[in-house]
Design a protein around this nucleic acid. Structure first.
Lengths: 178, 178
DNA sequence: ATCGCTGCAAACGGTTTGCAGGACA
DNA sequence: TGTCCTGCAAACCGTTTGCAGCGAT
């Protein structure tokens, strides 16, 4: 009935393709942040941050642990949680919750924020940015007297492939639509 | 640092003001659903559903337990969880997650869906509906090849009162902005 | 009478925390 | 050399589940 809380989200492909330059830039920002806070730049912190910065996916703590293990790094989950908190504080990462029973994280650079489309069948996540969303949000907030700090827009549905029936409908990936 | 997982969300005022007629209508729908599923209409189920239907707020399981206790009803939390699942299946309630560490629930009637503005200072929640949001969502989904099943739009910020400084900024209500 | 429900308490699972030993500056 | 970190395991806490007894149909 209820989608199983698959912390085995690792069944999803975890690739490490994207903009290496971007990752290095983010690493510098992270190191600067640590210096500024007078916190040590440890090997583990660098490894965790780099893994997140190199991925264009939304990673769970288990995903990160798996990714690091494959690189031959042994990092405790407690350290991963603690480092992710630092990255969020430094505004270099964002915490996401797609209702799977655990959190995911994605890197972010500066002012850029994304909204998400999540496939409830295969778990694919598509990020997008749309000025129109910001405008509409501001309009609504103004009308109801709110001062906006952040927002969260998630659209759940079937991605192109799943819509076309490339995968069996019902293949459970732990994503629970609202 | 991290907002404490205050399951003591009951510190928030829980009132029971709104449309009684609507609540009774929803009760009938719930009873119909149970009959249709050949499930017993028990006293506990009616009490839990009624409490949710009579409230215009987003209630946690603890809120509901508290509300029921005040009415002199002793209902186990397991039963509340189980009944809420039924209400969600029957499409008479919606599960919400504002990042507090626990779920909230609000009743819903038929096709009506709401988006939310959440005050990160006092916890106030304002529901709203905007056709423009649906339009924009459809446009984005179409462009990215998705078939929409549901969505979630939450705007976090300061409500009119908190913006005006009526409450001390920083008063922690357990709502964690993204 | 027969299911299915209910309450209790134990189990579960993601996240947090305490602590002894180790690493950065 | 002192401070902060790390890993482990235990604690935490919202939620789920197993089970014996009760209630709805």
């Amino acid at each position: 009935m209820a989608a199983s809380k698959t912390s085995e989200s690792s069944s999803r492909v975890i690739s490490t393709k994207p903009p290496i330059g971007c990752a290095l830039l983010l690493m510098d920002l992270f190191r600067s942040y640590l210096h500024q806070q007078r916190l040590p730049v440890t090997h583990q912190r660098e490894a965790i941050a780099m893994s997140l910065f190199e991925s264009e996916q939304q990673l769970s703590v288990d995903d990160l642990a798996e990714l690091l293990r494959r690189r031959g790094e042994h990092v405790g989950k407690a350290t991963i949680y603690r480092t992710l908190s630092l990255l969020v504080e430094a505004d270099l990462a964002r915490e996401l919750d797609f209702g799977e029973g655990f959190k995911r994280y994605e890197h972010q650079a500066g002012e850029a924020r994304y909204d998400h489309l999540i496939c409830t069948n295969c778990g694919r996540v598509e990020r997008f940015t749309r000025p129109a969303v910001d405008d509409l949000q501001d309009e609504i907030a103004a009308e109801l007297g709110f001062f906006v700090q952040s927002r969260r827009l998630e659209i759940y549905g079937l991605c192109g492939r799943c819509k076309a029936g490339e995968r069996e409908i019902g293949e459970d990936v732990g994503v629970r639509p609202k």
